[in-house]
């Protein structure tokens, strides 16, 4: 049996308006289909080939380059308001192969396969000699820093006991003098005071806190500063902001975000 004739193809320019619309539809699809880590934004369209689809429509087969932003995927901030992670912050890029169907001027993603990879330490060193580098999320210093920061946050918070949901990012300063971590917490139905066994605390659905913390080692001990932004309708009592915390999360920019 004769193989079906390949459908006619066309090779548009990567910056043609319809190609860019297809790429943006793919970015929106990627961001709404992963539950961990950060939102990604379009950086460059590498390749595109358009196939005729029977009985109607066209399929855009593309390779696109993305860059990680500083917004967690659970953060309701619109993507256009999310800052791209800069080279000196140890940027992370995403490479995606996507197929997008264009039918009746609508773009629907048929499939997407993506890989993310951090910039190399050498490249970060080229732009910043003493910047903190990404660390494995299961590094013992990272785990300790998150534990200490969450304990400090719960100690300040007065409404709800928060549990750890995800460690999203960690960086170690040169000589490991300080650890910078970002993690996601979830409020529970326990009050911070009466938590004998956290296992009995139930998570409050659809409410999250995104926290940034820095743990600094010093002679005879360590300092930890944490600040969290709670998304959703969690009851919030604005705790005293620890001074000296790392880049604190900005003021409320979207409904339901409360810096604590």
């Amino acid at each position: 049996a004769r193989s079906p004739l390949p459908s006619p193809v066309r090779d548009p320019n990567c910056d043609d308006p319809d190609v860019e619309q297809a790429a943006l539809a793919a970015v929106q699809y990627v961001n709404s289909n992963h539950r961990h880590g950060y939102k990604y934004t379009l950086n460059q369209i590498d390749k595109v080939r358009v196939y005729q689809r029977r009985p109607a429509g066209e399929v855009y087969s593309m390779e696109i380059d993305l860059l990680e932003t500083t917004c967690h995927v659970l953060d309701p901030t619109p993507l256009e308001n999310c800052t791209v992670r800069q080279l000196i912050e140890h940027a992370v890029e995403g490479d995606c192969d996507v197929s997008v169907l264009k039918l009746d001027n609508q773009f629907v993603v048929l499939n997407a396969k993506c890989e993310s990879s951090p910039d190399s330490a050498e490249d970060v060193r080229k732009v910043c000699l003493d910047c903190a580098l990404l660390a494995p999320l299961n590094d013992t210093k990272v785990l300790h820093a998150v534990d200490a920061a969450l304990a400090a946050f719960n100690a300040q918070n007065h409404t709800s006991y928060f549990k750890l949901l995800e460690i999203s990012r960690a960086q170690l300063a040169p000589l490991h003098s300080s650890v910078y971590v970002e993690f996601v917490v979830v409020p529970t139905d326990c009050s911070p005071k009466d938590v004998a066994d956290p296992a009995v605390c139930n998570l409050l659905a659809d409410q999250y806190g995104f926290c940034k913390a820095t743990l600094t080692e010093k002679v005879g001990g360590e300092d930890v500063a944490a600040s969290c932004t709670v998304f959703g309708t969690a009851p919030v009592v604005p705790g005293p902001q620890p001074d000296g915390v790392g880049p604190t999360v900005g003021p409320t920019v979207a409904a339901g975000r409360h810096p604590v």
Partner: peptide, 25 residues
């Protein structure tokens, strides 16, 4: 004498990769 016209236009080479919106890693 017939002067030959310009040959068939070379196929337009698609401009890819496209523009860089931020920076290259």
């Amino acid at each position: 004498p017939v002067i030959p016209g310009p040959g068939p236009a070379a196929p337009a080479i698609p401009l890819c990769p496209g523009r860089l919106r931020h920076f290259k890693i």
